[in-house]
Design a protein around this nucleic acid. Structure first.
Length: 802
RNA sequence: GGGCGAUUAGCUCAGGUGGCUAGAGUGCUUGCUUGACAUGCAAGAGGUCACUGGUUCAAGUCCAGUAUCGCCCA
């Protein structure tokens, strides 16, 4: 058998992708008796461009799927899409040039489904071309009716357990668009403003204080005054009351470290609500709620004589009055940053709405304990989780005043205003279109008002383990929970990982998965995280696939330690090509020497053959322990080092003469045996990462003997051959070869040039062992003779008289 | 402002529990058509391990601080 001179990845890769797909190589068998290894695949949002950063982290998880499959486990590796929620909503609005609030929710959802379907087809094609071994029969999308049912079931379960409550809470609101706005839809805009110095009298008559503010129209909403606890100037004010000018209500003076002592007078007023700090203070200090703006940005009755005015006019009128009454002591023109709605540029307000919450603040200790039950790779990321949980200040707000998402399965009774929950057997429901079954359980009323809010996407995506297990469904999968692995990037530890742990804890008093592997980001050439919103995407995977093979890009994805961010650079993307080519050539050579190889025949192994087998065992053990820690880079690094240095540069040259000669069949067979096993083992070490070239070589060379349908179904190499003596003296014999090579290099001679003799001296106990390597040493160095003698240390002298 | 991480050769990165002249790939220099591979082989040059202190017989490695960069949160 012979292999062609060159390997053509462009032809081979689609060929093997079709092979795996048509043979169902990666199908999950739920009746298998093998232990299950399940992966909680991250559902990418379909809205955006996919870039090499995504590929980078998905490859890292995919490699682990292949590794565990080879380790003999039944791998559950689904794919999925997060197609509901704000990103899809905005994507659809952009694609279709519509506004969600101009149509009914179901009409808009139809549009979203249409748009996301196209994106999903593109994803599937891309994933296939990167050689991903997921089982597409396990596909789910977060907008699937049955997924919505699990999401609503989760809500009902939390409610039944008493973990859900409703409370008024501030949300970002655009007065122009008349809609709730998510943080992701805002942008900062620099604008001119005035810092007004206002005078507040102290209630006990002991003096007056000056407060600087850019929002005087919020004066009627003032509920407290804050100073910094370490500000010596104002310590004496603590606990006193101040009188709000014009409105004349009293507010307390409190201390909080968030006050910026450098800004204005170092005294700040807290209004409901000017900014996020106001919201935090309002929450933490349990302050009054004084709402002065309506949802169109006009002042309400609480603002007294300003009622009905748009805030801009109200500001002008109030400043005039403050001036007239002597409360305004001055002002300073400044430039500051405003949070505005990116679509219309209108400054955003905080509006107070009823929101649904899940109580988690009272469960911090339990959640930290759960975090400890999970194995974190790399371990230091657990600290981020712990600090996040320790510093939680709010319960989890799961409601959004949006359109495209999972609806709350809830109505409100028009008579008694109590919430009416859907029955589980009727899920999923859309209260905007469905009616509750039967009358109101509280008062018997029969008229209902639907809950129009939808759930936050995290409320659904935190259920991916339950979705995979089809929790509560007819075809629920027994024993899939907790899952084996959650792969994800470090930027969403505080959201996705945290909420998933929370849900598993609340629903089933357990952890969602045993292991979590946290990957880094691909950074663009200016060392920033690549993201669509920043517009700094450097790598289009389709372009990359055009220029590099999937194996090369996968190699790049696995080139750094788990958790490290890695620089995306054209310079290093092609590094994997060397290895692919070298594997091809080495195997091409080996296969040409295997023609008369009898696998069944047993022979005594020659010293260098024992050496290379032992070296392989050592490399395979390192690779395995790396993989068990999710360190694919160790596997690649140690595997490549073994393959290139030990096997190709040295062993193949050493064994060449024996492999070509038919005069000494035992010596030849011994080399064939070692080469066959070491090469087959090496292919398997590389199989999880460079998936196509290894399959190509396996099918061409090893399939017939080994019998596995695919290399990716072959067992992971766990060799136990270890000959410590051969290892030690083989390495020593290598030093002799290096000496000969250096001699030739320094003399500008070809490596094939003959040498007269090599004079070797060594202690007698070493000599006995080294002499056994003599035949191979002669052939690889092209020396005519080797003269051995006893000496203190190993010393090697090359003699060449030309 | 807080949390976490990073800072090692021109470039991209390795360097568990401190221990002989700090490693790899790439790039650079020189040589070599070696019965697989010039997409190769051999040899060579190249580093005050960000900075300042400290612990120690011994610090790239441990501790404290400083600087710069990144991510997340505020």
């Amino acid at each position: 058998m012979t292999l062609p001179k060159r390997y053509n990845a462009k032809e081979a890769e689609p060929k093997w992708q079709d092979f795996w797909n048509s043979r169902g190589i990666f199908k999950y068998d739920r009746n298998s008796s093998k232990p299950v290894y399940s992966i909680d695949t991250p559902p990418p949002t379909v809205s955006g461009m996919i870039h090499m950063g995504h590929i980078f982290s998905y490859v890292q998880a995919e490699v682990m799927a292949r590794y565990h499959r080879m380790k003999g486990m039944e791998v559950y590796y689904p794919f999925c899409f997060d197609d509901n929620g704000l990103p899809s909503e905005r994507f659809t609005e952009q694609q279709k040039k519509v506004r969600a609030q101009d149509m009914t929710r179901s009409e808009f959802v139809e549009l979203c489904l249409e748009v996301t379907k196209d994106a999903e087809d593109m994803f599937r094609d891309l994933w296939t071309r990167f050689g991903f071994s997921c089982d597409w029969d396990l596909l789910y999308t977060t907008i699937d009716p049955w997924v919505q049912r699990i999401s609503q079931r989760s809500f009902l379960d939390l409610n039944k357990k008493g973990f859900v409550y409703r409370k008024e809470s501030p949300t970002l609101w655009c007065p122009e668009c008349q809609t709730a706005v998510a943080q992701a839809e805002t942008e900062d805009r620099e604008s001119a403003s005035v810092f007004h110095d206002l005078e507040f009298p102290l209630a006990d008559g002991s003096g007056k204080i000056i407060i600087a503010t850019t929002r005087p129209e919020l004066l009627p909403a003032c509920v407290a005054i804050f100073i910094n606890p370490s500000d010596e100037r104002w310590k004496h004010l603590l606990g006193k009351m101040a009188i709000v000018p014009v409105y004349n209500h009293n507010v307390e003076i409190l201390a909080d470290f968030r006050v910026d002592m450098e800004k204005g007078s170092g005294i700040v007023m807290c209004c409901t609500f000017g900014d996020t700090t106001d919201i935090e203070w309002w929450q933490e200090y349990d302050l009054d709620l004084r709402i002065v703006l309506d949802n169109r940005g006009h002042m309400n009755a609480t603002a007294g004589f300003l009622e009905g005015m748009y805030w801009k006019k109200a500001r002008k009128v109030l400043v005039q009055k403050l001036n007239d009454e002597g409360f305004r002591k001055g002002g300073e023109d400044i430039q500051h940053v405003l949070n505005v709605h990116e679509r219309c540029g209108t400054p955003l307000e905080y509006l107070v709405n009823m929101q649904w919450f899940v109580s988690i603040l009272d469960k911090k200790d339990e959640l930290i304990r759960r975090g400890n039950e999970v194995n974190w790779y790399p371990p230091y990321f657990k600290v981020r989780y712990e600090h996040w949980v320790e510093n939680l200040k709010w319960d989890w707000c799961i409601s959004r005043q949006r359109f495209y998402g999972v609806p709350f399965p809830v109505w409100f009774c028009e008579n008694c205003n109590e919430p009416v929950f859907a029955r589980e057997e009727n899920l999923p429901v859309d209260p905007l279109e469905d009616e509750p079954e039967g009358p109101c359980p509280s008062c018997g009323g029969s008229a209902f008002r639907p809950e129009s809010d939808v759930m936050d996407t995290w409320a659904t995506s935190s259920l991916t383990p339950q979705i995979n297990a089809k929790w509560g469904e007819k075809d629920e999968m027994e024993g899939l929970l907790p899952m084996s692995l959650r792969p994800q990037a470090h930027d969403i530890i505080r959201t996705w990982a945290f909420y998933t742990i929370t849900k598993a804890h609340l629903h089933s008093d357990s952890i969602p998965w045993k292991d979590i592997m946290i990957s880094g980001h691909a950074l663009n050439p200016s060392r920033e995280k690549m993201s669509k919103s920043k517009g700094n995407i450097a790598g289009d995977p389709l372009v990359a696939l055009d220029r590099y093979s999937a194996d090369e890009l996968r190699y790049w994805s696995c080139s750094s330690k788990l958790g490290n961010d890695v620089l995306f650079s054209e310079d290093v993307l092609g590094d994997g090509r060397r290895l692919v080519t070298k594997l091809w050539n080495a195997t091409r050579f080996a296969v040409s020497r295997f023609e008369d190889f009898d696998r069944e025949l047993r022979t005594d192994l020659k010293p260098f053959d024992r050496w290379i087998l032992s070296r392989f065992t050592r490399a395979a053990r390192n690779a395995t322990s790396g993989m068990d820690q999710y360190e694919y880079s160790v596997c690649i690094r140690d595997g490549e080092h073994f393959f290139w240095k030990a096997l190709c540069d040295n062993y193949l040259e050493i064994a060449k003469k024996r492999l070509y000669s038919d005069d000494t069949p035992d010596e030849k067979h011994s080399a064939q045996y070692a080469l066959y096993h070491v090469l087959y083992g090496t292919l398997r070490l590389f199989a999880p990462v460079i998936v196509h070239i290894t399959e190509e070589l396996y099918q061409a060379v090893f399939r017939e003997n080994e019998g596995h349908e695919s290399l990716h179904l072959a067992p992971w190499p766990e060799p136990d051959y270890m000959d410590e003596t051969a290892l030690k003296y083989g390495d020593m014999a290598l030093q002799i070869i290096e000496k000969a090579r250096r001699f030739k290099s320094e003399a500008n001679l070809s490596m094939a040039a003959p040498l007269n003799s090599i004079e070797i001296s060594a202690p007698s106990e070493d000599l006995i062992e080294l002499i056994t390597f003599e035949d191979d040493l002669l052939s690889v160095t092209r020396a005519e003779t080797i003269n051995w003698s006893e000496g203190q240390n190993l010393s090697v002298r090359i003699v060449n008289t030309e």
